[in-house]
Design a protein around this nucleic acid. Structure first.
Length: 556
RNA sequence: CGGGGCGUAGCGCAGCCUGGUUAGCGCGUCGCGUUUGGGACGCGAAGGUCGCCGGUUCGAAUCCGGCCGCCCCGACCA
């Protein structure tokens, strides 16, 4: 196929839009792949949609290969389905009514609808099943950001597996894990498969696929020796051992005027920050006030505490703090107050400095178990400098984009929808489900984050908008056409830049758009009856006679 | 949801503080000419409800109030 740039809707920009921050956002907009319509809302222009479709096709092939069956469910969904599942209350769900007042939901994924259909599965003989579709998802995000990284509307491939038992679900889950690895590999995207934090739903196992990038919302933890990888939210690191002062037989008051932060406290008392503790009062969804306690040099991991409390929570207000502890924020501690204390595991052994619940005072030598009775849990966030839990190697943290997420759902939805089947033993049982999502747009953003230089994008072949970009310089239009035709005959999709522009501008656009090879046709080369073939990613350039083009392409 | 920033031609911006010609600049666009292997040059031209509504004033892009939109940070570090 040959497409002429002179007739293509391909508005490239010399400068990045002022509101773009992420590299992928800037380059996709500048290259004429996408345009913003509103916050978190993007149109895919012709070139962008070609890339999107290529990613979609790769996903389709890999999911089909594990037995997936493509179908299509509606976006507009009766609210009743969501009330049945219990997800109607989720804040990010878009809700609307028709003119008769009937309630609808715009789904953020399609578990409800697929489970609704799965009720037609009646016998174990029909299992397992993998059903999927590509469809538009809507999310009322509090804050869209980073171009394609977090949006309010996007196409997602979501697949659902239905099995007769856990073993079947495990098998379906592993099939998808394999498919996902192949999908990202084919897209030229480096990803890491990590266990995800299950959060408020609790108990469900899920894996994330994280692509390390320059910008993103996730943090990937990697061991220098390659034997450990995790999402920072769920990562287990081995922290350093604190330098404890001499222990005391009982807590001792110490006056600390004006000391509000851990840093101040450590230097004022001349103790290791790791030998202090930090108290964070929170209020759970059902109104309980809980004191979260972590080591002074640590940070609380909100997800972990949510899991531990089996409830979401918010920070306590100043008034609540004052009423419960009799002191302000900087002087709180677990001793002598009647509140539930959840202490991090690291506070189990040793003596720590804590707030005294008296403004301007702290306590030295506070010991869990002796001076207060906490519930212990792992609620600290992993931090740079922690050691690998497997080999003791150094852990690094880098930003990443979550491009895929696969869940073992179990019977959560089948129970609510009463999606049962008759098993071999004659008993009626609930379907055991899994769900598997991947976003092509996010995948594209991640690919750009991983494959670009200062001039623009360098697409991996499998997802490039066109295989070759033929730059036709003035005076050799005829030969440029012949070159494009030769590439086309060799089965390549060709973008032929036949615009009446200067060479520099065409080269700059070619670099920006990022097709894997650029073929320059100009007077300089024509004496040899040849063209210059340049590899976008490496910059290598070779002169190739036109008749040999199709044969030479593989080894540019 | 909290904080900060921004909104002036297709894109990127200045002007606003200190109100007063016909609202500018660069890029892009259109026409003519010269050019033509890394974003050329000359001449000419088009293109603006200064985000919206209201107020102050003889006079508002500029000052005041309200609203809308967009971006960034935060929504653990008490």
């Amino acid at each position: 196929m040959i497409v002429r740039a002179s007739q293509l809707f391909l508005p490239t920009l010399r400068e990045a839009p002022a509101d773009a921050d992420a590299v992928s956002h800037k380059l996709l907009v500048r290259g004429g792949f996408i345009r913003q319509v509103g916050a978190g809302l993007f149109s895919f222009l012709p070139l962008g949609w070609r890339v999107h479709q290529k990613v979609v096709q790769i996903i389709r092939e890999e999911i089909d290969a594990i037995g997936g069956q493509e179908m299509l469910c509606p976006v507009l969904t009766p609210a009743e389905l969501w009330k049945t599942s219990g997800r109607y209350e989720i804040t990010e769900v878009f809700k609307l009514e028709d003119r008769a007042g009937r309630e609808f939901v715009l789904p953020l994924s399609h578990e409800e609808t697929f489970t609704f259909h799965a009720r037609e599965l009646q016998s174990y003989k029909q299992l397992p099943q993998i059903l999927y579709h590509f469809s538009t998802k809507e999310r009322d995000e509090s804050r869209p950001r980073g171009g394609l990284l977090r949006v309010r509307e996007f196409v997602m491939k979501d697949a659902y597996s239905f099995d007769r038992d856990e073993a079947g679900m495990e098998h379906s889950f592993q099939l998808h894990a394999g498919a996902y690895r192949r999908i990202f590999e084919r897209c030229g995207l480096q990803t890491y498969e990590v266990e995800a934090e299950s959060g408020i739903m609790g108990g469900r196992e899920s894996w994330d696929y994280l692509a390390p990038t320059g910008s993103g919302e996730n943090e990937l933890v990697l061991c220098e020796n390659g034997d450990y990888q995790a999402d920072r939210e769920a990562a287990r690191g081995v922290p350093r051992t604190p330098d404890f002062p001499e222990s005391l037989s009982a807590p001792e008051d110490v006056e600390t005027p004006g000391v509000a932060t851990i840093e101040d406290l450590a230097s004022f008392l001349d103790v290791d920050a790791a030998a202090t503790s930090k108290a964070m009062p929170v209020v759970t969804a059902d109104g309980r006030l809980v004191l979260g306690l972590v080591r002074g040099d640590d940070q609380l991991n909100e997800e972990k505490l949510t899991t531990e409390l089996e409830s979401g929570f918010r920070p306590a207000t100043d008034d609540e703090i004052r009423a419960t502890f009799g002191a302000g924020g900087g002087s709180l501690g677990p001793v002598g107050v009647d509140v539930e204390v959840v202490a991090d595991e690291l506070l189990r052994d040793g003596q720590f400095v804590t707030g005294a619940n008296r403004d301007g005072w702290h306590l030295r030598g506070v010991e869990a178990g002796r001076d207060y009775q906490p519930r212990f849990a792992d609620i600290r966030a992993l931090q740079e400098g922690d050691r690998c839990p497997i080999c003791g190697g150094t852990l690094s943290i880098q930003t990443a984009i979550e491009v895929g997420h696969i869940f073992k759902l179990g019977r959560h939805f089948s129970e609510r929808f009463e999606a049962r089947f008759l098993d071999e033993d004659g008993r009626e049982k609930l379907l055991v489900m899994g769900s598997y999502g991947v976003g092509p747009a996010r995948t594209i953003a991640a690919i750009v984050e991983q494959h670009h230089d200062e001039h623009g994008i360098a697409w991996p072949e499998a997802v490039a908008p066109y295989d070759a970009h033929v730059v036709a310089l003035p005076g050799v239009e005829q030969q440029a056409e012949e070159t494009a035709a030769a590439l086309d005959a060799a089965g390549r999709d060709v973008l032929l830049d036949d615009r009446d522009q200067r060479a520099g501008e065409k080269f700059a656009d070619a670099d920006l758009i990022g097709c894997p090879i650029r073929v320059t046709v100009g007077k300089k080369t024509l004496d040899d009856g040849a063209v210059d073939v340049r590899d976008r990613a490496t910059g290598d350039e070779h002169r190739v006679p036109i008749p040999e083009l199709s044969g030479k392409l593989a080894g540019v």
